[in-house]
Computed example of a mutant assay.
Amino acid sequence: MQGFKEFILRGNVVELAVAVVIGTAFTNIVTQIVEGLINPLIAAIAGQSDFSDVELGIFKIGLVIGAIINFLIIAAVVYFAMVMPMAKFKERQAKRRGTTEEAAKETDVDVLQDIRELLRQQARTAPPATTQQ
Results as ranks from 00 to 15, higher is better:
51 F>S: 07
19 A>C: 04
73 I>K: 05
76 A>D: 08
39 N>L: 11
5 K>H: 01
76 A>H: 09
43 A>C: 02
88 K>H: 03
100 T>C: 02
65 I>A: 05
115 I>Y: 12
7 F>K: 08
102 E>L: 11
79 Y>V: 14
47 G>T: 11
100 T>Q: 01
124 R>G: 02
10 R>V: 00
26 F>A: 11
39 N>I: 09
24 T>C: 14
133 Q>G: 04
89 F>I: 03
22 I>H: 00
100 T>A: 05
42 I>T: 02
75 A>V: 14
77 V>A: 11
29 I>G: 08
110 D>K: 10
34 V>Q: 01
108 D>R: 15
1 M>S: 15
63 L>A: 04
126 A>H: 08
130 T>Y: 10
46 A>I: 06
110 D>M: 14
63 L>D: 11
133 Q>H: 07
1 M>E: 15
49 S>L: 13
70 N>F: 10
28 N>C: 03
107 T>C: 06
2 Q>A: 03
101 E>K: 03
94 A>I: 02
43 A>W: 08
67 A>H: 01
80 F>D: 01
12 N>S: 11
107 T>L: 04
2 Q>H: 11
13 V>H: 02
114 D>S: 12
108 D>N: 15
44 A>I: 01
38 I>H: 02
59 F>N: 00
49 S>E: 12
62 G>V: 06
80 F>N: 12
89 F>R: 08
72 L>E: 08
70 N>W: 07
69 I>E: 01
91 E>M: 05
48 Q>S: 14
50 D>R: 15
121 Q>P: 00
62 G>Y: 03
129 A>F: 04
126 A>I: 02
101 E>A: 07
64 V>A: 15
72 L>S: 10
44 A>D: 13
42 I>S: 02
30 V>E: 03
55 E>H: 08
69 I>L: 06
13 V>Y: 09
4 F>K: 10
12 N>V: 07
62 G>I: 04
104 A>T: 04
4 F>C: 10
105 K>F: 15
110 D>R: 11
89 F>P: 00
30 V>M: 05
36 G>K: 09
76 A>W: 14
118 L>R: 07
11 G>Q: 06
131 T>E: 12
91 E>Q: 07
87 A>Q: 15
12 N>I: 09
57 G>A: 10
106 E>W: 03
36 G>T: 09
32 Q>I: 11
53 D>E: 12
66 G>D: 06
106 E>T: 10
113 Q>M: 12
93 Q>R: 09
31 T>C: 06
118 L>M: 14
104 A>E: 13
116 R>C: 13
127 P>T: 07
40 P>T: 06
94 A>C: 02
27 T>E: 07
76 A>M: 11
39 N>K: 08
86 M>H: 10
